[in-house]
Write a protein that binds this DNA or RNA. Structure first.
Length: 770
DNA sequence: TAATCATGTCATCCT
DNA sequence: CGAGGATGACATGAT
């Protein structure tokens, strides 16, 4: 039951963070990436502004006991570290791995516009986009991307694996020197323990990275946007810079495709219509080039593909945003992207006539990482005919936006993908001669379901269930740990740490008690005793709590920490677990003191004592508070039975014991809380990684789907173009359409009929969704 | 001086 | 039933 309760509590916390992470507005990302302190502190660890907290975290979790959190040394230390790192950064080539990758990838032979883009994510995606149609090394490329991505995450501190390589020997040496300077002031070496150092380093790193990225990422977002929308050097068309970037490969293949299509529609005779689609496929290998093709056949099909393409692209935009967020692009960038003036992209886009679909398609291939703003401009007229707000509000993944999402995402499923836009209910004024949906029956329902599931999963903020379902369907080797199995782990870890802490605390206290217990009870001067007695009897309320003598962290064995002169060095919130022990331990033998100093000393001692100690003294309790608190029940009762104690004394003793126990419990409780938060931090990082990976996978799926779709389209055109009526004339695409039946046969049916059926099929998945 | 933090304490629930 | 652990809430002192 205890663990269940724990689990629930922790689970609630996790759930909360989870919600904010994956659900509503995906805001944790922005919290993480922006410089908003609170959540960021919790998740990524405290910044220097929260040094105190950070220190306590370390103190509690990393055994960083030894320097007081409020000590000035700490600031010195951090400042020194930071300056040191900055100085060192001057002579070091500190380029994040991803950055390097980006540059490598960006060695564009054409020196295209995007080559100057600093966005690593964009570059990476572009790289995979470059390989898009070749497809052969896609896997390799993708893995590169993934690697780069995760590295990126790590670089940005979202992940903090102990990379010992981060610290060079000179680093350690320098830190060592610093430590030696600090240890005199009471700083324990644990402070400079690696984990701590790494945390600190992360802070430094963040500073440096922040400086670097200011150059590259967020600040230039708008500029990049502007640049990306500039006129393309090659074609003179105005479209996003990504377009020429990807043109190398995809455009090429699409041009091939175009040629193929143009070639496949001869006006010749003897058009034999293959009865079977498979035979059709065999008869016309996708890359073969039958000569001659009617041009007007192209546009309906190609424009028909634009809408789905653009929907995919929206997904990729989504991707980009997610990943950019994950890459700790700060919110300002996102805002820039979100609020990208619709006018320019739109006009730029509309400058793309529908009869230049290649560029659009090509750009769509590339629209993945980073380039969200550009991507907006890539929406085809069909999609952009929707209110602009729809497409932009789509991006933050607001669940309440479901209607818009449905209207846009709904057509992302295959039915939408393969239906010409006019059948989708989206206006398509620019489309040329219309062709009916040729491919409605080509892909089976199951696939439709999968795709819509994917859409749904991400659309609704990555519902874990759906996401895992999605995972099961698409990726068996998932590392996703969204389910509750994670909580027990963190639970157990916190449990373990708490138990360890409690055990160590009790052990340290008890050891103290064993050595010093008796002295504490006897060593008080009588006058102060009577005084205290009066006070105690007069006032039931607490006396003011005296400041403590030493910082005695309940786990801190460091003798340095008990030096009285250190008290004014830093504020001292001691866990006075064994105050009497401390008192007696640190006091010089009374014989060595003069009488005046002895008085002072006892005054001083008084001030070091906790309220309970004062009360105990006042009530003449014959044994130490430490014993009262830490003795096992049996021994405690034995002890009580040895003395004749008044009811008041007994009651006080019980109170002391209760309070002492509760004090430790509170300490443990707080420590547990911190542990929980740290664990959650790690969990969030993991989930972010998982999320990014899933999104990458989705993009991959969509990419391959798009390729399939292209193939099918070209095949359709080829087949349709070869059809001849009894007079040997080609069928008009505006009047006839091919339709695939369930049994694999292909029918030539009148356009109107095809439209009807297409609409019916289109409604199905939408209904299912409701 | 107000805000914030760390810590102690109490009340309460639970085992 | 009492001891004691856990934890939320509040108090207090320090910064």
């Amino acid at each position: 039951m205890l663990s269940l309760k724990k689990y629930l509590t922790e689970g609630l916390l996790q759930f909360t963070i989870l919600l904010s992470l994956i659900g509503v507005r995906v805001d944790v990302d922005t919290y993480l990436t922006s410089q908003l302190p609170p959540l960021r502190e919790i998740i990524l660890g405290p910044s220097s502004a929260y040094t105190q907290t950070q220190f306590h975290n370390l103190r509690n979790t990393l055994d960083g006991y030894g320097i007081h959190p409020k000590s000035i040394d700490l600031d010195n230390y951090f400042t020194a570290r930071r300056l040191l790192s900055q100085v060192r950064a001057l002579d070091r080539f500190q380029v994040p791995t991803t950055e390097v990758n980006a540059w490598l990838v960006h060695r564009d032979p054409e020196g295209s516009v995007s080559g100057s883009q600093p966005s690593s994510g964009l570059a990476l995606e572009s790289s995979s986009g470059l390989q898009d149609v070749t497809g052969t090394d896609n896997g390799v490329r993708e893995s590169e991307t993934e690697q780069g991505f995760s590295e990126d995450l790590e670089d940005l501190g979202a992940v903090a694996p102990p990379v010992s390589g981060d610290l060079t020997k000179e680093d350690i040496d320098l830190i060592d020197i610093l430590w030696r300077q600090d240890i005199d002031l009471g700083a324990g070496r644990e402070i400079f323990d690696y984990s701590h150092r790494q945390k600190e380093q992360d802070v430094d790193k963040e500073l440096q990275d922040g400086a670097e990225q200011e150059d590259t990422w967020p600040g230039e977002g708008a500029e990049a946007l502007a640049r990306n929308l500039l006129v393309d050097g090659e074609t003179g068309e105005s479209f996003p810079a990504q377009v020429p970037d990807g043109e190398d490969q995809t455009a090429l293949s699409l041009e091939e495709c175009l040629r193929l299509l143009e070639a496949t529609c001869p006006f010749g005779e003897n058009a034999e219509f293959p009865a079977d689609i498979s035979s059709l496929t065999e008869a016309v290998p996708s890359e073969s080039e039958p000569p001659g093709l009617q041009n007007n056949l192209l546009s309906p099909l190609l424009t028909g593909t634009e809408s789905p393409f653009d929907l995919e692209q929206q997904w990729q935009d989504l991707m980009s945003i997610m990943e950019m967020q994950a890459m700790e692009v700060n919110t300002s960038t996102s805002e820039i992207l979100y609020s990208a003036p619709p006018g320019d992209p739109l006009s730029a886009n509309y400058s793309l006539a529908p009869n230049t679909p290649i560029n659009q398609n090509v750009s769509l291939h590339q629209a993945s990482l980073g380039g969200c703003s550009q991507d907006f401009s890539l929406f085809s007229p069909e999609v952009e005919s929707l209110p602009v707000a729809d497409s932009s509000t789509l991006l933050p993944l607001v669940p309440s936006n479901s209607t818009n999402l449905n209207s846009t995402f709904g057509s992302t499923n295959l039915a939408g993908l393969f239906f010409p836009p006019q059948l989708n209910g989206t206006a398509n004024d620019t489309a040329g001669p219309e062709l009916p949906d040729p491919l409605g029956g080509l892909l089976d329902e199951a696939m439709l379901d999968e795709i819509s599931l994917m859409d749904l999963a991400i659309e609704e903020g990555f519902n874990p269930v759906q996401a895992s379902q999605l995972e099961e369907e698409f990726d068996s080797d998932s590392g996703l740990s969204l389910d509750s199995s994670h909580s027990p782990s963190s639970l157990s870890s916190s449990e373990g740490s708490s138990s360890s802490s409690s055990s160590s605390s009790s052990s340290s206290s008890s050891s103290a008690s064993s050595s010093f217990s008796e002295e504490g009870a006897v060593g008080y001067s009588s006058d102060s005793e009577t005084l205290d007695l009066e006070e105690a009897e007069g006032a039931v309320g607490y006396q003011p709590e005296y400041s403590k003598f030493c910082r005695m962290s309940y786990q801190d064995p460091s003798p340095l920490s008990c030096l009285p002169y250190l008290e004014h060095v830093g504020h001292n919130h001691t866990y006075n677990m064994a105050p009497s022990a401390l008192d007696s331990a640190d006091l010089p033998p009374p014989s060595t003191l003069k009488k005046g100093s002895k008085e002072k000393q006892s005054d001083f001692l008084d001030k070091q004592m906790s309220r309970d100690e004062h009360r105990a003294r006042a009530m003449k309790i014959p044994f130490t508070n430490d014993k009262i608190i830490n003795l096992p029940v049996e021994e405690f009762n034995e002890l009580l039975s040895k003395y004749q104690l008044s009811e008041a004394q007994l009651s006080l003793i019980r109170d002391i014991r209760r309070r002492g126990k509760n004090k430790m419990a509170a300490q443990n409780c707080r420590k547990r809380k911190l542990d929980t938060i740290l664990n959650l931090e790690r969990d969030v990082e993991d989930l972010q990684r998982d999320k990014a990976r899933l999104l990458r996978e989705k993009v991959e799926f969509l990419r391959s789907l798009r390729q399939m779709k292209q193939k099918v389209q070209s095949l359709y055109q080829e087949v349709f173009g070869r059809l001849r009526d009894e007079n040997g004339r080609p069928y008009s695409p505006s009047q006839y359409a091919l339709q695939y039946t369930g049994d694999g046969s292909v029918l030539l049916i009148p356009r109107a009929l095809a439209d009807q059926q297409a609409r019916r099929q289109e409604r199905k998945p939408k209904d299912r969704r409701k």
